[in-house]
């Protein structure tokens, strides 16, 4: 048994103090990292509760229910960001940081409970689960941004974007839950998707100087001037 709250306190306090010394995107990034960690802790509580309510085994809860709970909790701060109407690149930074914070805290707790003696295990944990959370949150943010651009940020649009993240997360958990060939596919999936997302990101947000840095865009800015439906 590990004391997840204590671990969170230990990691969060230095980051919290850092916030007083930072401004702009750096502060936003650290704050989002913290939010991701808190979301991870809450997700663990809620998944445990759902396990009791549904009478599922620990394995089934981790494979089937946890992806939904975790993605819902990561989605909430992003939706709050959207309500505050930040620029698109700010939202992307926040989403990546939330994913990274979530993955960091989850990895910390996991390594403390099962040990970190095997380098291969640690690498898989970092490159697969770590990247998967970042990919899911970034895809979710991209989905929400596309919805906002099309003036389609409705319940259906939000659920649609969320279903992509939940589906990807669920598929990963399902693939790695069974040992053998499927687990290798599962471990490779986040890295491949991260590469594809990075390519998509460069296509969607080419920098003004031709670099791949995201340019600042307002909602609906790129839409052509054809009459609405």
């Amino acid at each position: 048994m590990i004391y997840a709250e204590n671990i969170l306190l230990c990691i969060a306090v230095p980051l919290l103090i850092t916030l007083f010394f930072l401004r702009g995107n750096a502060r936003r990034c650290i704050a989002s990292l913290l939010i991701g960690m808190i979301a991870c802790l809450l997700a663990a509580y809620i998944s445990g509760y759902l396990q009791l309510v549904t009478g599922s085994t620990e394995h089934n809860t981790a494979v089937f229910l946890s992806p939904i709970v975790e993605e819902l909790l990561k989605c909430m701060p992003l939706l709050l960001y959207l309500l505050l109407a930040p620029k698109e690149n700010e939202l992307l930074i926040a989403s990546v940081a939330i994913g990274a914070g979530f993955a960091t805290f989850e990895n910390c707790c996991h390594l403390l409970s099962v040990g970190a003696s095997s380098l291969l295990f640690v690498l898989i944990r970092g490159l697969a689960v770590g990247v998967m959370h970042i990919v899911c949150t970034t895809a979710l943010a991209l989905g929400l941004m596309v919805c906002r651009r099309h003036r389609a940020l409705t319940i259906a649009g939000i659920l649609g974007a969320l279903s992509l993240a939940v589906g990807f997360h669920g598929l990963y958990n399902l693939l790695v839950s069974v040992e053998g060939c499927s687990s290798y596919v599962g471990y490779a999936l986040p890295i491949i998707t991260a590469a594809a997302l990075s390519f998509l990101f460069q296509r969607l947000y080419p920098g003004e100087d031709g670099s791949s840095r995201p340019s600042v865009q307002e909602p609906g800015q790129d839409l052509p001037e054809s009459p609405p439906q």
Binding site: L65, P67, I68, L162, L171
Partner: peptide, 8 residues
């Protein structure tokens, strides 16, 4: 009991 495919 309830999984990602139901959500999607």
């Amino acid at each position: 009991p309830f999984a990602a495919n139901e959500f999607a």
